[in-house]
Amino acid sequence: MASFLRHYGSLIGMAAIVVFFWIALPDTFMTLRNWLNISQQLSMLIVVAVTMTVVMVMGDFDLSVGAMASLSGVVAAVLFAQGLPVPVALAVALAVGLLGGIANGVLVSLIGILPFVATLATMTMFSGAAFLVSGGKTIFGRDIPQEFADFARSGLPLGTWGGNLVVLPALTLVAAVVTLLVWIVLEHTIYGRRLYAIGGNADAARLAGVKVAQLRLSAFAFTGMGAALAGIMYASRVASANPVQGDGLMLTAIAAVFLGMTATRDGQPNVLATVAGVVTLGVMDNGLTQLQVDSYVRQVLVGAIILLAVSISALGRRAIRLR
């Protein structure tokens, strides 16, 4: 029983949260429309959290993802405003993410700065750059091409239900593709298994022939790209870009990975668990909003629930001491 709780406690907790809102909001919560809505709202967070998982698997993390999302959003918007074609602007914005990620990787793996310090510094830099690029203003309206803004509103028609056309939002689709991709890479490729090995014991991995420095660098590049993609998705969704709009993603993404880790058997980061973590946080946000809970109270509640989950799993694991 104890071990059952230890292994599945978090999942049960997550399910309990869903059931709670189902009962509290009988008409609006458990509807396809609401869930599609949640999935769209969460799509950016999923992309950031899932690519964050790539570095967290190695025991590292990246504080600069939020700032990078903001930066890539304004970079794309500024290029739109200059009249560049949409694909070119997006490619440049993604390239900024890649370069920023590589910069993080170089600092962490080649120069040997702690990820906390390195990405804290680059976070500040990316954030400053976002203000510089945008001139501190929000870019919106005619500067944003219609086709770009339309993308977030489009989707894949799934059929009709109850007389309404059900559409899978395009952003949800992007998040799903990214999740699938990262899941395959981490769980089924040599690359992913080596990242897990680095997380297990970096020295041992190196002596066993793993190119630790290169892999760490590339993983940060991966995360940087993910952040940039999320920033673009965000800009499309709100059809505008300002230099702080992605900043909030970072803390929530890290929280989601940690929340997910409490649900895995070995207590280590894992893509599907991360998604479960994101969904839990998103569901709470959605449900509490619908219940018209004050947004400050909401923050306190969400923080408390994260702590609760992590504490329960830490207590459960205390038994499994290292020898």
Binding site: T189, I190, R194, A204, A208, D266, L322
Partner: peptide, 26 residues
């Protein structure tokens, strides 16, 4: 040598992953 918290199979397979996979897939 070992990755203490990870499955023992992973420690054994680690240096041989290239040989144990096709097109990068383990």
């Amino acid at each position: 040598g070992v990755m203490p918290r990870r499955a023992l199979a992973e420690t054994i397979a680690l240096p041989h992953l290239a040989r144990l996979s096709r097109l990068g897939f383990v």
